[in-house]
Simulated assay, not measured.
Amino acid sequence: MKTLRILAVDDHEMTMIGYKFILEEIQFEDFTIQVDTAKTYELGKQKITDSAKSFAYDIIMLDIQLGPANETQAHTGEDLGILARKIVPKSKIVFLSSFSDNYRINSILKSVNPEGYMVKTEIDENALNDMVHTVMKEPPFYTKKALIAIRTKMANDIPLDDNDKKILYHLSIGTKTKDMIDHISLSLPGIENRKRQLKAIFGVEKQNDQALITEARNRGFI
C-alpha cells in the first residue's frame, strides 16, 4: 500500500500534533499517511529542500503566520509556499490558517496558487479526510469560509491595483495613514490621494475611513 508523505508547518506544536494524530489514524482505502512536522520557516525550508533530493512531499500543509505577529521581518507560510513551488513543484500545497479575510486568502491564491485553503475554525477529522482525497485526485479543496471569500472577490468587477488593496487592508487592521508608508511603496500624499479616489470608487466620498472599510468589506475586497 502506498504511503503519502505530508509535511505540516505550524508554529503551534499542539496544532501540528493534532493534524499528525488525526491524519495518521484515518483509515484510507488506497494509502497510509506519514506526517512530518516543522515549527519554523527555517526548519520547514530545510525539510522541503532535503525532500527534493530523494522524494517530494505529496502534501505540504502551511500555516500563514509562523512567528509572533510583531516580528515584521519574519518569514511567513506564504513565503514558504512560494519557495516550495520552486523547489518541489509537484507537491500539493494547502494552507491551514485562522485568517479568513478576503484580502489574505486571495493574496495567497495569487502568489502561491495552492491546491487548498482551510480556515482553522472549520477543521476537523472529516475536513482533513476530505482535503486529502480532494487535493490528491481533483484539487482544489476549500473550507466554507475560504470559498465564500473567493466567490465574493470574484463577484466584484472594480479594478483596483495592489497599492489600492494594500491601503484597504491596512485601514481594516487599524494602521494609521501616516504609518502606511512603511508598508506601501507610495508617499504620504500619494496614499492620501489614493484614499480619496477609493472613497469615490466605493461611493462614500463625504464619509470617513470606517465607511470605506465597511463598503470594501461588503464587496469582498477585505
Rank of each mutant, 00 (worst) to 15 (best):
M1H: 11
M1G: 15
K2P: 01
L4P: 08
R5T: 05
R5M: 11
L7P: 05
L7T: 03
E13C: 11
M14F: 09
G18W: 00
K20Y: 02
F21G: 06
L23A: 02
I26F: 11
Q27C: 04
Q27A: 06
D30T: 05
T32I: 04
Q34P: 01
T37S: 14
E42T: 14
E42H: 15
T49A: 13
T49P: 04
T49Q: 11
D50M: 05
S51E: 04
K53E: 05
F55K: 06
A56P: 00
Y57A: 10
I64M: 06
G67H: 05
A69M: 07
N70W: 02
H75N: 13
L80E: 00
I82R: 06
I82G: 03
I82N: 01
L83E: 07
R85G: 14
V88G: 12
V88L: 14
K90I: 02
K92H: 12
L96P: 03
F99M: 12
D101Q: 13
D101T: 07
D101A: 06
D101I: 03
R104I: 08
I105P: 10
N106C: 11
I108G: 05
L109G: 08
K110Y: 08
V112C: 06
P114W: 07
E115H: 14
Y117M: 02
M118I: 04
V119M: 03
T121W: 04
I123R: 09
I123Q: 09
D124A: 10
N126V: 10
A127N: 07
L128C: 09
D130M: 08
D130I: 00
D130E: 15
M131V: 05
H133I: 08
V135E: 08
V135Y: 08
M136V: 09
M136F: 09
M136G: 12
K137P: 08
K137S: 15
P139N: 07
P140C: 11
P140D: 13
F141P: 12
Y142C: 09
Y142W: 10
Y142S: 10
Y142F: 14
L147H: 15
I148N: 12
A149I: 03
I150W: 08
A155P: 04
N156H: 08
N156W: 02
N156K: 09
D162K: 10
D164F: 00
D164Q: 01
D164E: 01
K165G: 02
K166I: 01
K166V: 04
K166T: 11
K166M: 11
I167N: 08
L168Y: 04
L168H: 01
H170Q: 14
L171V: 06
I173H: 10
I173Y: 07
G174S: 07
T177R: 06
K178R: 01
D182P: 00
I184T: 13
S185K: 13
S185W: 00
L186E: 13
S187A: 09
P189E: 09
G190N: 12
I191T: 04
N193Y: 11
R194M: 01
Q197M: 02
K199A: 07
K199G: 11
K199Q: 12
A200L: 02
F202W: 00
V204G: 12
V204L: 10
E205M: 14
K206G: 09
Q207H: 10
N208H: 08
Q210G: 13
A216R: 09
R219S: 03
G220A: 03
I222E: 05
